[in-house]
Design a protein around this nucleic acid. Structure first.
Lengths: 244, 244
DNA sequence: GCTTGACAAATAATCGATTATTCTGATAGT
DNA sequence: ACTATCAGAATAATCGATTATTTGTCAAGC
């Protein structure tokens, strides 16, 4: 039980959006690998805690060691990969404790960032929220079609990041983005569909409405509850699968 | 004005504490480089914002590209180095805005971590604080002898991390450690000696006393003020040097 | 039976050389 | 003069091979 089952990881063919020009920094093999691996980990394609064998990965992706290490190194910053000298890389493990920390820190940091955004955000920020909300609410999650799940996840992530994008604190945004990554991995791996007693769409709407209306206490409390509920929900799913 | 003046960076000879055994993970060249470079950046030896020329660095440190990139990649996680595809690495720039964010986030995160530590920390945690405080207060900062500054910085960092080490949240500790790194760079570069109207030693003592006495509001407020004062102090020094 | 040590296989780290990309600055055209 | 273009230099990225370290296995000794 040492090596990840990477059977379904095809060779990398990054889907460049072909917006025409403007090199947005996904050019090197190392970068493409980082994206590919990030997706593989968050989606659960690479099992949490499993060792990443460099030689096998090299063959799987048809690359040399250098860009492979490069890509993996970046995922360390994301908290998705762990590393030890002379022992190589492994997919960051998951645990109840980790999930609870991620949830707790999201409540603390995302709410703080939302508060700051409401203090500092301008009209463009408001507009971005409404757009992100609309796109998210229009998106459908069909468990039968994985690509819709991926799409929803991307829009959901986008919504949460947009909410706090007005805070003017790059480091804080970075931390939140990181926590969101970790959180999304739990959802994608453990949550096929959201629990029945929630209307997640409405929760998002309430947060967004409160934010643009600058009702600080309301919006922050709604966001906190939203995060907390997701945490509780996920915790139950982890417990059901016997994960400590 | 593109390339860092790395003239004073000697070849790497990591001072292994030679505690005898127990490989604590500083064995590879990449790791040693990471330590060496981290120190060089925090101490200001490598100028903020300067480009890191791989070829020159390779010669300076007498290493090959692979471990050099490896080491630099780790400093990206620390927020001390920035990277762009095909354009290489540069020392993370400093700015008033960044200092203010670091200070603001330290107030938020370190105080939160202290509160959690006071809620969860055990007697060992208390003991560690008293030890760290004692060692810090015994250490002297003599501007004429750089090694005492380094020593003080290490102990100071140790004290702050120990304070919050009982929080049981590895990710939070990681964030705080990172912010402390960034903060220390500002201090080491801009602050030869602490401003006259402060008794930093007493501030540390008050925080520590409050923490072990579990006087949550007192300790947290003292810590917050401590961080805030340092921020203000540093901001003045930056402003005096005309840094925006 | 259990530990210890030596060897071999597997794996990670590093190197030197090669390829790809970006930067520079000289030149030609407007 | 000013901008655009292109060759050559500088620099970053990648590769394939080599070296170092760890892990697994098995036999000897207790």
């Amino acid at each position: 039980m040492d090596t990840a089952d990477d059977s379904s990881l095809g060779p990398l063919t990054e889907d460049v959006p072909s917006t025409g020009f403007l090199d947005d920094g996904k050019n090197t093999i190392g970068s493409q690998l980082a994206s590919r691996l990030r997706e593989a980990i968050i989606s659960g394609e690479l099992e949490a805690g499993s060792k990443i064998n460099l030689d096998k990965a090299r063959k799987t992706f048809n690359v040399s060691l250098s860009p492979l290490r490069e890509g993996l190194a970046r995922l360390i910053s994301d908290g998705l990969v762990e590393f030890q000298d002379n022992r190589g890389y492994r997919v960051a493990p998951i645990s109840l404790a980790n999930l609870e920390e991620v949830t707790s820190l999201r409540e603390e940091l995302e709410v703080f960032a939302l508060r700051e955004s409401m203090r500092l955000g301008d009209v463009e920020w408001e507009g971005n929220i409404m757009r992100a909300l609309h796109r998210l609410n229009r998106s459908e999650r069909d468990a039968a079609r994985p690509e819709t799940l991926e799409q929803w996840e991307a829009l959901h992530r986008e919504f949460h990041l947009t909410l706090i994008s007005g805070c003017g604190k790059p480091l804080l945004l970075h931390f939140c983005s990181l926590l969101l990554n970790l959180n999304d991995r739990y959802r994608r791996v453990f949550l096929i569909r959201t629990s029945g007693d929630r209307n997640v769409g409405q929760e998002h709407s309430e947060i967004a409405q409160g934010a643009v209306a600058r009702d600080v206490d309301y919006a922050c409390e709604k966001l906190r509850q939203h995060i907390h509920r997701t945490g509780t929900n996920l915790r139950n799913h982890l417990a059901a699968k016997g994960i400590a």
